[in-house]
């Protein structure tokens, strides 16, 4: 069944990473994918999981189209190698492609939080392959891809700036259909923790614009806070500097020191990812 010229055959993963708009992805090693432990729980999230997995690893996978075109003689041969796979259970080519992409994306999200994956992504970060922060005072800080959620098919990829601590929409339209779950919520935090150099770069930028006056001016005058159009979100980029502010900052160690502590409740959220453990036994 092995068809098209095998010398210039490009592995599926390399092909995927070269596709238009897939510039943020790194190539996951075959060893990582072949280790079943790394795939725990994915079988329930991806339709035609086995076929998709074989596609990633460049094994031959039968689809409905193959069976139809190949005719009965091929079908008979296949029946020997793959027993118990009736024709109506075979995936359609388009569905198989999309579930292979989904599976690769989900594996990718896991791979980039391992040591090897982090190093590869750090290289891309260094080369500024994820773009620069559009905020003027961040002085073209390099961005890090992040998913708003770990569930696939919900949100597109966003970019996190470690300097202003905020997330941005990618500048180019081509990234607007890349699933955020393929990068995951954990990745940027881990990258910043693993490479303290990044925080250093941020500190340099913060010091550079320390004395700059943010905010609007009208003929040289700042707008008063009490005005309708006065500044309202200066806190968003504020950094504690004076002794008073630092003392206040230290009080924020564990909760919001405001009112009777009622406001602190909003800080306690419980959106942990529990999908992995539940589905462990399903495969």
């Amino acid at each position: 069944m092995a068809s098209e010229g095998e010398e210039d055959y490009v592995p599926w993963i390399r092909q995927f990473c070269k596709l238009f708009g897939h510039d943020y992805f790194v190539a996951v090693s075959h060893e990582f994918i072949e280790d079943d432990f790394n795939l725990t729980g994915l079988s329930s999230q991806v339709p035609y999981y086995k076929e998709a997995l074989y596609t990633l690893l460049d094994y031959q996978v039968d689809t409905i189209e193959d069976v139809k075109n190949g005719g009965d003689s091929n079908n008979k041969n296949n029946n020997n190698t793959k027993p118990g796979k009736p024709k109506h259970e075979l995936p359609n080519r388009v569905i198989l492609d999309s579930s292979a992409e989904l599976l690769y994306g989900l594996i990718h999200a896991r791979y980039i939080v391992t040591k090897a994956g982090l190093t590869e992504m750090a290289g891309k970060f260094e080369r500024n392959e994820f773009g620069s922060c559009p905020r003027y005072y961040c002085d073209s800080m390099h961005l890090i891809p992040v998913g708003p959620l770990d569930i696939s098919g919900q949100e597109t990829v966003r970019l996190y700036c470690p300097c202003c601590n905020d997330t941005y929409v990618p500048q180019s339209l081509r990234f607007l259909n890349i699933d955020g779950a393929f990068f995951g919520t954990t990745f940027p935090g881990l990258l910043v923790q693993m490479f303290p150099e990044i925080e250093n770069q941020c500190r340099i930028r913060l010091n550079k614009y320390k004395n700059e006056e943010f905010g609007l001016r009208l003929f040289g005058f700042r707008i008063n806070e009490k005005s309708m159009s006065g500044p309202r979100v200066k806190w968003l980029r504020a950094v504690p500097e004076t002794a008073d502010e630092i003392a206040e900052y230290d009080k924020c160690e564990l909760r919001l020191p405001w009112g009777e502590g009622d406001d602190a409740d909003e800080e306690i959220e419980d959106d942990e990812e529990d999908d992995d453990d539940k589905t462990m036994a399903s495969e």
């Binding site: 923790q193 806190w235 968003l236 504020a238 924020c252 919001l256 800080e267 942990e272």
Partner: peptide, 29 residues
Amino acid sequence: QTYVPRLFGFKLHEYSKLDRWRQLQRLKL
């Protein structure tokens, strides 16, 4: 709304602390 980086669902302490301080500045404003 602000963004706080998370590790496996848990907010990073340093960033969370800064975020709380910023929210405090907003409440004071």
